[in-house]
């Protein structure tokens, strides 16, 4: 279910993995309490560095998204973003769709739209708060 990250995208692989897990939770593909595949298995299947997988899992644990249970494995934590957040996610998807339609209607090219979003995100990074 986890798919290969893009190593050349410039985004660190561990971040891509974290995003995949969070996305899977948001869309309901993985639910609280369910077990994630083992780190070793993930590394071998995706052919990426095991340390990278470990880092992703650690960060996810730090953020409270998953729990690492000694000897048992990694599990989606109970208070991870749930279906409620899946709905929030879907609402966000809709909002983005509306904005993009509006911009396209104004004649803004897709490539520019993407850059505008990225630039805005990067410029306001720190402002989101820790």
């Amino acid at each position: 279910m986890l798919f290969r990250p893009n190593p050349s995208s410039g985004v660190p692989i561990y971040l891509q993995l974290m995003e995949q897990v969070k996305h899977a939770i948001a869309t309901g593909a993985m639910r609280p309490g369910e077990q994630l595949p083992g780190m070793r298995k993930v590394a071998e299947e995706l052919v990426i560095n095991p340390n990278t997988v470990a880092k992703a899992y650690r960060e996810l644990e730090h953020e409270g998204v998953i729990e690492l249970r000694q000897g048992a494995g990694a599990f989606i934590s109970e208070n991870a973003p749930s279906k409620k957040d899946a709905e929030k996610f879907r609402a966000a998807q809709e909002a983005v769709a509306v904005t993009i339609d509006k911009l396209r209607a104004k004649g803004v090219a897709d490539e520019d739209i993407r850059r505008l979003f990225e630039a805005e995100l990067l410029a306001t990074e720190g402002k989101r708060g820790e």
């Binding site: 190593p7 050349s8 692989i13 780190m39 070793r40 590394a43 071998e44 052919v47 990426i48 560095n49 095991p50 340390n51 990278t52």
Partner: peptide, 30 residues
């Protein structure tokens, strides 16, 4: 690469490899 990564995942070891393939370094190196 898979054999390497799989081996490193289960046995503790250090890997030092020279390469011209930037993509593979991106993929498995830390």
């Amino acid at each position: 690469l898979q054999a390497l990564v799989g081996h490193v995942a289960s046995e503790e070891m250090t890997v030092f490899f020279s390469s011209h393939q930037i993509a593979e370094v991106d993929q498995i190196a830390d």
